[in-house]
């Protein structure tokens, strides 16, 4: 069966956008949901963000950053190759309505998750501000697409090569300090970034949605690998999330759990690197 890759492009260092034939997922996907894939019989199952869909063509667009063995293998696939297993859409769709002034904060590949949500928020009538951050100007992804849908786009880079020199949290803090009216905040990116944003909004009781990239296996609530502590309760990112009220999330625990298999992941990556070189 498999899902065929019909388009593939490098959009930032180590970040790819691929289009994959997956008619059932394309028909059903809503902003905020994700897919899980497995590349071959020996592969692991990993969750990935769906950037966009084309139900007519039966195609979904996936954005991924090369970080471990599975994403390295995905990087090595060419247009025409098939992904053995692809299942979705998983997780709950984002709650979309006209909140008023919405601020979407995207760090790194988090942009891929933010983009469809921001687009839906804009369509629902929100005044949309997007804060887009990356390590360097090269690492800013989807800048053009986000510029098209947002009323205001703030760009920042860690090295100052484009936009404000600094983190998204610093840009966001300025906005808060200027007492701009904000009704809704969405933050997706590295755990530390989401934590920093929530630390800013929590004292102001400003509703902040975060999307959590926990480690998953089945993605249907069956295993509990992706459990996160939210407001002192155990929640499963795959079926209760992936979005949660950021004020209640235990980011330290999430961060630790994301490192659970670091040694084994390093080993798998090294072995694959050797295989690549041997070819």
């Amino acid at each position: 069966m498999g899902s065929k890759i019909v388009k593939k492009e490098l959009i930032a260092p180590s970040v790819y956008r691929i289009e994959v034939l997956a008619p059932q997922v394309a028909k059903k996907h809503q902003a905020g949901q994700f897919v899980i894939l497995r590349l071959n019989e020996h592969g692991e199952r990993i969750p990935l963000t769906v950037l966009d869909k084309d139900p007519q063509a039966g195609v979904i667009t996936i954005v991924f950053q090369v970080v471990g063995k599975t994403t390295m293998m995905l990087e090595d696939l060419k247009v025409g190759d098939e992904i053995l297993d692809l299942v979705g859409p998983l997780g709950n769709p984002t709650e979309i309505k006209n909140f008023g002034n919405a601020v979407c904060i995207a760090g790194g590949v988090g942009c891929a998750c933010v983009y469809p949500i921001a687009k839906a928020l804009k369509q629902a009538g929100n005044h949309l501000t997007v804060i887009l951050g990356g390590r360097t100007s090269q690492h800013l992804i989807l800048e053009k697409e986000l510029a098209e849908i947002s009323d205001r786009l703030e760009i920042c880079t860690d090295d100052g090569s484009k936009g404000t020199h600094g983190f998204v949290s610093q840009v966001f803090k300025q906005m808060l300090d200027q007492n701009q009216r904000i009704d809704y905040v969405l933050a997706v990116g590295p755990v530390l970034m989401m934590k920093a944003i929530c630390d800013l909004t929590r004292p102001k009781k400003l509703h902040t949605v975060v999307s959590l990239n926990a480690i998953m296996v089945d993605g249907t609530g069956m295993c509990g690998s992706c459990r996160v502590q939210v407001g002192g309760q155990v929640k499963f990112a795959c079926v209760d999330g992936p979005e949660f009220d950021g004020a209640d999330v235990d980011f330290n625990n999430l961060s630790a759990r994301l490192r659970a298999y670091k040694e084994m992941e390093d080993l798998a990556r090294e072995l694959y690197q050797e295989q690549r070189q041997a070819k």
Binding site: R45, E265, A268
Partner: peptide, 25 residues
């Protein structure tokens, strides 16, 4: 959870890591 422990091992064959990619502590 037993489900996760067993799924990683049985379905995903973590006992054959690194021949199989799924890790298990």
């Amino acid at each position: 959870s037993a489900n996760e422990f067993l799924t990683r091992n049985n379905l995903m064959r973590a006992y054959q890591f690194p021949q199989y990619d799924t890790p298990l502590l």
